[in-house]
Write a protein that binds this DNA or RNA. Structure first.
Length: 422
RNA sequence: GGAGACGUCGCAUAGUCUGGUCUAGUGCGCCACCCUGCUAAGGUGGUAACGGCGCAAGCCGUUCGCGGGUUCAAAUCCCGCCGUCUCCGCCA
């Protein structure tokens, strides 16, 4: 939820943000209008309520005829209070409903839609397979050759976009996730294994039930949602709490399964394990003071790049355009690895600065010298199942074997090459 | 799944039976000041969040797990839900 005070004091900032995202700027005026009505009706209610309380005290002291007279007076007042309270509550609900529809105010992201990202840098050089004298195999062919990935049986058991990681494939995923977790711990993050089923309040608070609600699995019988990332649970972790951030950001590294319906992506990335309904992820999450958020965002990106360096992938960093930001994000950087068989970049990490948007919804504050205020929250990817795709393709050799990047060898018992089993 | 107990201002608790004097008391912790060779102890005062009005001082409202209800009036009575603990049942 955005800052109502900001919207009141600087509506043009919010209008401009709406414009940049391609959302409706008129929503700002609807909120201003609803806010005015709420305050009017709240003032009316509070005045009457104060009167009622004062009279109530007199009733308690009075007796006999005096009491009867007071009771007659107060009876009518009670009805008025009830009516005004209902009106005030309705006005508040109306305001909330409108306010919840405004996504976070964009901060520094380039304008435009999905294709209007800005490339911040490119790191490493894609291999020239023609020069090496062989055509690269795609990740599924490699994965099947290594007996590491089984999508056919995944589909048999669970349907399309499900898979088994088998043998060295399962070990490879664990290696990636363990390397990510170890790096996070070394940087001072608290490792966390989080719930993957959350309440509607938690899901709503993190901003995932807005425009992209179709992406989320819901267990109707139990009124719970399956998370698409441990960010959801980690954002809820300190809900309704007042934190002491005087010692710097609170950093958590969440390990969890992630579930996505992929409802709008029929026909996209259908082959292999690029886009699947279930995968695992190690996610960084940080609660920090709002002044520190941009710097923390830069640190998150640096930690993601450190992981990418460990697996020796060529990648680029993009600054996501305003129209492609999630509801909660004010700015987002993605790291995309080169995918040789598709001659394109594939998103491996994504780090978002949610400023105070999530914290307002989840009611996470920090204590300052003069009271409390919402904190900033940030999140970023340190490793996922999808990384297997890029690692297999980029480190493959002519015979179908795959060289293990040095950063992962300690997690695979020193193994240097994954050999095909056929 | 069944039975019972419980949920109060950071923590611990009083208050609920018998609705109004609860403007929620007390202890601990914390902050300020005082006292004091040092330390320990002691004294005094202060110590929630959110919202509205106001230039401000301040005034007012909301919140006793959450949501309804009864009543002139609810921490207190009634209903529903959530959570915690104990016991039983079932099961990894």
């Amino acid at each position: 939820m955005i800052d109502l005070r900001l919207l009141r004091d600087n509506p043009d900032v919010v209008r401009a943000s709406q414009q940049a995202r391609g959302d409706d700027p008129a929503l700002v005026d609807a909120v201003l209008d609803a806010d005015a009505r709420r305050r009017t009706s709240l003032t009316e209610f509070e005045g009457l309520r104060a009167e009622q309380k004062a009279l109530g005290k007199q009733v308690a002291k009075a007796s006999g005829d005096e009491k009867a007279a007071l009771l007659a007076k107060t009876k009518q007042l009670a009805e008025d209070v009830k009516a005004r309270q209902a009106a005030a509550n309705a006005a508040e609900a109306e305001l909330d409903e409108l306010l919840y529809r405004i996504p976070n105010v964009v901060e520094g992201a380039p304008p435009g839609g999905e294709d209007d990202y800005v490339v911040l840098k490119e790191v490493g050089t894609p291999r020239d397979f023609a020069a090496e004298g062989f055509a690269p195999r795609d990740h599924l062919e490699l994965g099947e050759g290594l007996a590491a990935v089984d999508t056919a049986r995944g589909a048999k058991v669970s349907g399309s976009r499900f898979y088994f990681l088998t043998g060295i494939g399962a070990r490879l995923e664990l290696a990636i996730l363990n390397a990510a977790m170890d790096q996070a711990v070394a940087e001072g993050f608290t490792p966390m294994i989080t719930p993957t089923l959350v309440t509607p309040a938690t899901m709503r608070g993190t901003g995932f039930l807005g425009a992209h609600a179709d992406e989320i699995y819901r267990l109707e019988r139990d009124d719970l949602y399956l998370v698409g990332t441990s960010e959801v649970a980690l954002a809820g972790y300190h809900g309704d709490e007042i934190l002491d951030l005087s010692g710097g950001p609170r950093r958590y590294a969440g390990w969890s399964a992630c579930y996505r319906r992929e409802a709008g992506s029929h026909g996209k990335d259908v082959r292999g394990i690029i886009r699947v309904h279930q995968f695992h992820k190690v996610e960084m999450f940080s609660y920090c003071a709002v002044e520190d958020a941009a710097a923390e965002h830069a640190r998150m990106l640096a930690w993601e790049e450190a992981m990418l360096a460990k697996v020796e992938l060529p990648y680029r960093v993009i600054d996501t355009a305003a129209g492609d930001l999630g509801t909660s994000a004010a700015r987002k950087f993605d790291c995309e690895a080169w995918l040789p068989t598709q001659q394109r970049y594939l998103e491996l990490t994504s780090t978002s600065n949610c400023t105070t948007f999530q914290a307002r919804r989840m009611n996470v504050r920090e204590r300052t010298d003069d009271g409390t205020r919402p904190v900033a929250t940030l999140n970023g990817t340190l490793g996922t199942t999808r990384w297997i795709v890029a690692i297999l393709e980029n480190h493959q050799q002519a015979d179908g074997s795959v060289r293990v990047p040095e950063g992962l060898r300690p997690y695979l018992g020193g193994l240097e090459v994954l050999e095909p089993v056929r």
